[in-house]
Structure formats: structure tokens, C-alpha cells
């Protein structure tokens, strides 16, 4: 199966380790991964901040770059939800504005074949034990767009539970937003920071060493808060845990 890695602009620029982990993991599972070099950004920040029309060229570009692959895999719940939930909506809005079906038709092919990483592993590859080894105490934070947008449900937890050496502990109030919210984090910094602190405090209460999530934007906010609060906990993307093996462990 020829699969494209849609890494996202945030991961490409700030978190290449997550990208390398996805490549390593999928390659180990026998998937032929490609990284189309022309990929940039799905347009989520534009769309959610109220710049839908500026997000449209990015969406068209996305469709252009990824349209030819059998599957598109992304290690980001929110960027995955952007394509799956909001691309169809962008098409509908363009139609409602009297601009015809062109945008909807252009975007339609990429929508059903875009998968968030854990969805791709569990639903498409049909694996929950990916042969990973990670001897740490971990708590999992389900990020909002993965949880409520894509409906990832128990998939990430099932994957983590199958990791050798990993002790998974429940995060109290797991389903509450961490307070990142894209531009919300800077437009409403007080509320965002208060939500982040509460999330970090409940993560600390589990006694875990690592807070795991499937979205680096949320982890950037949570991790940044952890560093300021000097908790000693670390944020780690789920791809990096699943990529870690006994032979080549993630420290």
C-alpha cells in the first residue's frame, strides 16, 4: 500500500522526531511511506481563526499533493479532523456562496482516505500490538479534535496498552480540553493558561512520568506549561512511543 505521510506544518518545523517515528513505525509494519515534498499546511489555523477564504488555496493544494495516494496518514487529530470534517464544510460553504461545486469536487477525493495515525493502525492495518517497547509509566490525554471530531475512542489506549513495559494510568478529567485551541492560546491567554495548569496538575496526580497524546500542538502547550511549573513530567507524542522498540528504544 502506497501511503503518504501528511506530517503537518507544526510537526515538520518543530517536531521532526514525531515524523521520523511515524516513518520508522509504519516501515516496521510493512507500509511503504512517502513524504510528498510539496506538502505544507492543511489550513486549519486560517479556517478556525475566521479566514476560511484564505484556507481554500491551502485545501486545494492539499488535495493536489495528496490526491494520488491510496491513504494519507497524519500524526495529528486536529489536522486530520480539518480534512475530514471541515474540508466538506468548506465545499458546502463555497456552494452556498454561489461559487459552484468546484471546491467541493476538488476536495472530495482526499476526505475519506485521510486517517489519523492511530485510526490507520487499528482500522486499516488492523493492529493494536505494534511490537513497541517503552518501559515507563504513561498517562494518555485524548485531544479534543481526535476525541470529539474524529471519534478516535479507545484506539490510542488500546495501542498503548499493547506496548511492552508500558504502564498506562488513567488521567482524571481526561476528556477536558487542555486549553490550547490554536489562536485561543494567545487570544485568551489567561483562560488558556488556567486550563493548561489544571490539565498538568491532574496529569501530575497520576504519578506518571510521561503524558502522551496524539497531537503535538496540544503537547506544545501542555509541555510548555509543565516546563514552567517544573513538574518533571514529559510530553511525548504517541507515535514516538509506538516507534520505540527494545532494540532501538526511545529514551
Amino acid at each position: 500500500m502506497r501511503v503518504a505521510l501528511f506530517l503537518t506544518c507544526v510537526n515538520d518545523t518543530l517536531y521532526p522526531d514525531t515524523g521520523r517515528a511515524v516513518v520508522k513505525l509504519l516501515t516496521r509494519l510493512g507500509v511503504d511511506v512517502d513524504f510528498p515534498m510539496d506538502q505544507t499546511c492543511c489550513g486549519q489555523a486560517h479556517y478556525n481563526t475566521g479566514y476560511r477564504h484564505q484556507a481554500e488555496p491551502l485545501a486545494r493544494k492539499f488535495s493536489d499533493v495528496f490526491g494520488g495516494y491510496e491513504a494519507i496518514v497524519t500524526p495529528s487529530g486536529s489536522c486530520g479532523a480539518m480534512v475530514r470534517e471541515l474540508y466538506p464544510r468548506m465545499g458546502e460553504r463555497a456552494r452556498a456562496e454561489g461559487r459552484g461545486d468546484t471546491l467541493a469536487r476538488t476536495l472530495a477525493p482526499v476526505v475519506p482516505k485521510t486517517y489519523e495515525l492511530t485510526e490507520f493502525l487499528v482500522d486499516v492495518l488492523g493492529v493494536t500490538d505494534v511490537g513497541a517497547y517503552y518501559p515507563h509509566k504513561v498517562t494518555y490525554h485524548p485531544t479534543c479534535h481526535g476525541l470529539r471530531g474524529l471519534g478516535l475512542g479507545e484506539r490510542p489506549r488500546r495501542l498503548l496498552q499493547a506496548v511492552k513495559g508500558l504502564e498506562l494510568v488513567e488521567l482524571p478529567g481526561a476528556e477536558e480540553c487542555c486549553g490550547f485551541g490554536g489562536t485561543f492560546a494567545v487570544k485568551n491567554p489567561d483562560v488558556s493558561a488556567a486550563m493548561g495548569r489544571d490539565k498538568v496538575r491532574s496529569a501530575e496526580s497520576t504519578g506518571a512520568e510521561v503524558l502522551c497524546a496524539a497531537d503535538n500542538s496540544c503537547l506544545m502547550h501542555i509541555g510548555g506549561t509543565m516546563a514552567r511549573l517544573r513538574t518533571g513530567m514529559r510530553p511525548v507524542h504517541i507515535a514516538e512511543i509506538l516507534a520505540s522498540t527494545e532494540e532501538e528504544p526511545l529514551v
Binding site: 515538520d12 517536531y15 522526531d17 513524504f35 494567545v186 493558561a193 510548555g224
Partner: peptide
């Protein structure tokens, strides 16, 4: 305006190279 971020959160450190360069 960036202070709205860094007042309560550490900034992420940029990696030595973006993913696409590594790739």
C-alpha cells in the same frame, strides 16, 4: 503579543533541521 504565549508556557525549541530536510 508573543508574551501571551511565553508568560505561562515555555517555547518549543526548534530542531536542528526540519523533517523535510532529514527526509
Amino acid at each position: 503579543p508573543g508574551m501571551a504565549w511565553s508568560a505561562s508556557r515555555a517555547l518549543p525549541t526548534l530542531p536542528a533541521e526540519p523533517f523535510r530536510d532529514w527526509w
